[in-house]
Write a protein that binds this DNA or RNA. Sequence first.
RNA 1: GGGCCCGUAGCUUAGCCAGGUGGAGCGCUCGGCUGAUAACCGAGAGGUCUUGCGUUCAAAUCGCAACGGGCCCA
Length: 1080
Amino acid sequence: MFTSSLFAQYQKGFNCFIALLTTYKLEIIFMLKEAGQYDAKSLEQNIHKFWDEIDAYSKVREQRIKGPKFFFVDGPPYTTGRIHLGTAWNKIIKDSILRYRSMKGFNVLDRAGWDMHGLPIEVKVEGVLGFKSKKDIEKYGVENFVAKCKEFALSHRDEMTLQFQNLGVWLNWHDPYMTLRDEYIEAAWWTLKKAHEKKLLEKGLRVVNWCPRCETAIADSEVEYSEVSDPSVYIKFPVVGQENTFIVIWTTTPWTIPANIAVAVHPSFEYVKVRAVKNGKEEFLIVAQELLKNVLKQGRYQEHEILETILGEDLKIAYKAPLGHKVPKQNEFSHNVYLADFVTAENTGCVHIAPGHGIDDFELGMKHKLPIFCPVGPDGKYTEEAGQYKGMNVKEANKTIINDLTESGLMLASGKITHRYGNCWRCKTPIIYLATEQWFLRITDIKDKMLDEIKKVKWYPDWAGSARFADWVKGSRDWCISRQRYWGIPIPVWVCDFCGEVEVMGTMEELKSRSGVKELTDLHRPYVDNIHIKCSKCEQRMSRVPDVFDVWFDSAVASWATLNYPRDEKTIKEWWPADFITEGHDQTRGWFYSQMGASMVSFGKAPYKSVLMHGFTLDTEGKKMSKSLGNVVSPDEVINKLGAESLRLYVLSQNAPWDDLKFGWDEVGTVNRMLNILWNVYRFPLPYMILDNFNPVDVNEKLDSLPLRLEDKWILSRVQSLIKKVEVSMSEYNLHKATRPISEFILEDLSRWYIQLIRPRTWREANDPDKLAAYYTLYEVLVALTKVMAPFAPHISEEMYGNLVRNIHPDALQSVHMCNWQPAKEKFIDTELEKRMDIIREIVEASSNARQKLKRKLRWPVKRIVVSSKNEIVNEAVLSLESVLKEQTNAKKIVSLKTGETWDQLGVEVLPNHAALGPAFKKDAGKVIAELKTADGRAIKKSMLETGSFELKAGVITADMVTFKDLIPPAIASAVFSAGEVYVDTELTREIEAEGYSREVIRRIQDMRKELDLAVEEEIKATVEIKDDRVAVLVFEKKDFIAQEVRARSLEIGPEVEVEGDLVKDWDVEDVKMRIGIGR
RNA sequence: GGGCCCGUAGCUUAGCCAGGUGGAGCGCUCGGCUGAUAACCGAGAGGUCUUGCGUUCAAAUCGCAACGGGCCCA
């Protein structure tokens, strides 16, 4: 035992204690400790503190340094705001898988990552500084602005790190990769240089999504769609050479009409030329036949006449620019009709084409070498080229243009439409399409190779790659990587001011040596903006293009940037490509894609070997969680209410990882309850074990030498089977299938069954082998459980391990996470036994069902339980596990019938078959039926089975004339289970009544003990008055038994007892009045 | 409009790949237990398996279509 001074030393520190141990050569000083109620929050905090103190994470990683390598790349969360449930789920998945891998002996590399550049942060900082446009930033100074952005990113990283750590997530938080670091920037630069070398980098005019407020191109992924009201106008373009004839187009962006160059029609649609009359005035219109009705209705024409039908491909006409009088430049272009497959049978079937303002338009323009006319500037205002509209904001110009067209009589109809339109996801400004000069990666050139690489990657689930990702890549276009902003990785492209030669700087060193700049401490803007180099072709000055990278390009290089490549050329050879990544399905077009693209450019192969695609977190309704809907649940809220462990197991077990997760508090609560039960299971035996000086260091030998009961062997088998199940599920990253069986094991096998079975054994005071067998078995099971749970529930398993293992073994590993994954011990697995026990449990359930039918409480023993079976295994089960069955059903006797045998105590009711009896016996049928009612059913049934007939007084009946039904005696109830039926005989005997009433008395005294808050071992004096003489005598016979159960040093029972004590209560037991008093 | 995924009891879900009487948990109702006790256990009720068509002796399961939800794209 501990001496108090030793104990104090223990408190001071583990190491100190070890020292003492060695000095004094003490043994068996390590002991289990009792545990209080489950308090998730303080338990988790203590574990976090413990991990910090011993630097558990680093030790675990160091410990496996010789193991097979497992390279994991963390998809970097963007450092803005706080983490949400989806991010939490994401990191919990990562943590569980990496903990599992680590226990399996892998040398895991897992730097946490942070995505810290880009427009979202710029917009936030602009908000804080009250800026409205890029001019404000220029005025404030790019240097100051970038400093603010950096500060913002770093402070948010710190906040978010804490939140992830609160979830118990282990990644390398000490040395995360950050996109704002110079070595990271170099990885991006190096990649672009590679692209340039492979001729995959291209500068070109393209139509891009443009935010007129942010004055930059934005990625498709940065466009957020919402319902808005826009003009819906039908415009008549005057056809050249045909008097009073118009081709009719429809648009929601009248502001693009000044940039109109062409009209597109579908080659295989039928078009009509029609004479249409409105208010007596006639004109000729060209539209798709299918849509004629719509156009006539829109234009309120009263009558019409189809003059001609033309196939789209034959429609060769030219038209006059509708706004030529306002936009002089328009008159320099020729306007014609072209064919395009993207034309749909909607509105008019003729599509207005402005190659400067639409993606399809642009491509059609390129195909036919049309002018890419774009009279709109970066600020969303018309330029000089727009003639009279110059200086006008395009969105505001809609009205003016509609008026102008109406005035010139070209407006066929003008209305409003509500449709989805793209906005800048950060500042909510409606985007416009602009043809601008941008830098591109020619993804279209390497698409086929990418599709081949996708097939080499292992996708979980398979369709994430074969269907979803492949489909996205097939449809992908060249990647616009340039942004006209400030906070990002500067594009390392230098262009010769004189000859236009392009060069890409791959590293800081290269830039320094080419430019002669000695001091360069930061690779951001504005520090690299004014560095010039000498053109290697013409020796003139080269200047950097002012753009920064699309932020998706940052994370795209993560798999080598996290290995500090190209600065460190050695590490990448040992680790790359990544063994595993996992992100949500939104990242199909995001990180899965951007990484694949960048890696194809750099290395010509996929940067990852396997990908787990997970789902999204939705609210209870299945709707997206969003601030505007007010349905956001934060991980912090869940942790505060129910603990991180509950959240972890909830998100892991609720769904298949790839399905979306509908968050529900009730379900998290259920997980929490399960953990509470686990905790109770764990702490329940501790006081007994401690009292008995139980020391399980020799658990392995003891399990071999002690007389284990079948139930002990059963739970040992169950826990080993559980380990196997978890392994199989984890091999396919089926986290739900790994975690659900753990919960089931805890609830069903451990709590509801094994603990109930061994209870009486633990109360036994003698130190007998039977009790020890239960202790050792439970100990073994709990320790195995801590290891199998550790990847998923790292806190509670660490706590249990600390007590069960570290408090016992002086040389134990410090953390459960340092332990190796313990493969299933085959010698314990006995599937036959597991099957038998299943049957016993079914029988117990059925018998409790039967008891309920006759309202007989479990406290009252029953005379016997009879089991009828459909197959042999039931008999084997009942025979081998009879003691378990007897105890759990509280039966005096178990009778097992042979398979197929009916119980001889059952009566048989003979049901006459009138249809057969009538014709056979005619008017004597009545007599036969009357006789059957009182006849010996059993005899008739037996005879029918043996001879097929039976002789009654009234005549001989045959088998077809009767059917049989079992008759259950009144004191017997039955219930069926999957492989048979159970009969519970509740007939009362004197002994059963005595025991039943005694247990009623015991229960009430225990209840009163609790009310008085007595200690378990405290003795009492008890007096029991039972007015009913007969019951009083019955109970009196069990006086010693009762006294022992309630720890009474004196006990009086009788009809005339004077009841006294600290607490006196009246009870009504099954209509028998009792008055009980107890006192110290 | 397109691609992928999902749609089973009031709620959350298993079963679907390999077709043959739909299993759980929560909640609800009733009961039990009282040396895990601000715990625990049992029973019961509750399902047109989103809808329609098809394949088949047989469909929650396979096919087609529609409807609803999610992500992504246009």
